[in-house]
């Protein structure tokens, strides 16, 4: 496993993928935070003023939107192998395919934690000076923002794991990325407003990730944050195991 981890880490660090995706994650996270602060108090924004703890949690929690790029990087870690046929030397040097998937999951976890930390840090770097310029006092001991930042970190990290799972199931890069984004941005939000599906909808991957930061949105039923973490991790591992059993047991392209 040590060899595989060295191999996978080097694969990641020898192309520009990791920092390109990191920039993307930081950009999305920043946009979320900036939008929330900038629109606060405007007509049509129902959130209470920035002085309220709930609004502050919501501001910091919007950095979780960087998870989309963690998902994509997780997918590409797997699908790039099939796209460039580096799957061949990889599986020639380790024919036990499950171990290769396990190594990728571990490397994705480390990368996801780094992305998550970066998203949490940038939300602080943007929001704290801005809020203090506006004269808003942030009380770290009582507003629950630290908890939100932890949730952001974990949600982003676990999305990288989910990405690896998706990539193992759908080996085509274009298809895997398109399906994942279409599901998260279109399919799941639609499913969750269908009356009968609403109740079970909270167990879906997107809802689990939202629950992780513990920020409630109006009219949406959520699980507890820790349940969201376990649920999302479960989805990622389920995808990876199913992919290993079904797609990856076929011939290597």
């Amino acid at each position: 496993m040590k060899r595989l981890l060295r191999e996978e880490t080097r694969k990641l660090l020898t192309t520009r993928l990791w920092w390109g995706m990191l920039l993307g994650a930081l950009a999305l996270a920043s946009i979320g935070v900036i939008a929330q602060i900038a629109t606060n108090g405007l007509r049509g924004n129902p959130l209470p003023p920035l002085t309220s703890a709930a609004t502050q949690r919501s501001v910091f929690a919007s950095a979780v939107s960087g998870d989309t790029f963690a998902l994509i990087v997780g997918i590409i870690i797997v699908t790039a192998e099939f796209r460039h046929f580096t799957s061949r030397p990889t599986f020639l040097l380790e024919p036990r395919r499950g171990r290769v998937v396990a190594a990728k999951l571990l490397v994705a976890t480390a990368l996801g934690l780094a992305y998550g930390a970066a998203c949490a840090v940038i939300s602080v770097a943007i929001a704290v000076p801005w809020l203090s310029l506006k004269g808003v006092h942030v009380d770290w001991s009582s507003n629950g923002v630290l908890f939100v930042l932890l949730g952001t970190l974990l949600a982003v990290a676990i999305f990288a794991i989910v990405g690896v799972g998706v990539g193992v199931i759908i080996q085509s890069q274009v298809v895997a990325v398109s399906v994942a984004l279409a599901y998260l941005l279109i399919v799941e939000p639609l499913l969750r407003v269908i009356p009968g599906v609403k109740e079970v909808g909270r167990f879906l991957p997107g809802a689990a990730a939202e629950a992780l930061t513990g920020v409630q949105r109006q009219g949406i039923v959520q699980v507890q944050p820790w349940q969201g973490a376990l649920l999302l991790l479960g989805w990622g591992l389920l995808f990876a195991l199913a992919g290993r059993a079904i797609t990856l047991s076929r011939d290597i392209p």
């Binding site: 694969k11 020898t14 192309t15 520009r16 790039a80 460039h84 046929f85 580096t86 799957s87 061949r88 030397p89």
Partner: peptide, 9 residues
């Protein structure tokens, strides 16, 4: 067929 990532040295 060759098996390399084009961007990797």
């Amino acid at each position: 067929s060759t098996s390399f990532h084009p961007a990797r040295s």
